[in-house]
Amino acid sequence: MEEVVGGFEPKIVGFTCNWCTYAGADLAGTSRKKYPPNIRIIRLMCSGRLDPMFVLKALLNGADGVFIGGCHPGECHYIKGNFYARRRIAALRTILKQLGLDKRVRSEWISASEGDKFARTMKDMAEEIKQVGPNPMRDKIL
């Protein structure tokens, strides 16, 4: 197991809202903040569009981690989207926690001006997922 942890590069799927976290990722770019290349970003207009089924699908497809980024509560471009998202993600993670899968899913509120927070979160998350280890679904026939 130790060997695997050392050598493995996690695959992380990231759902980001267009207005805050995606913009924060852009700012990380314009500020040339390097972060590990594990993330594959899927842009949604709002974290309110995140159907938790997408997270499940990502995990079952073998993603080692799923990141969800939205505007800070109260700053949603669509006023309420991230409040709904928070409830959905909380519910999903509560389910996943019981199945021992919650550590693979993480969400953060990252605003357009928090490029550094985005880069830091990517770095932290890559580390965390390395600790958690590869998704057992990764090489399964599913």
Binding site: D26, R32, Y35, R40
Partner: peptide, 23 residues
């Protein structure tokens, strides 16, 4: 696909190429 802000500017060359292909 955001190759500039989210790939080229934030990853090293080999990693950036792989990320670009995936995205």
């Amino acid at each position: 696909v955001n190759l500039r802000e989210q790939v080229a500017w934030v990853h090293g060359k080999e990693e950036a190429t792989n990320a670009a292909i995936s995205q």
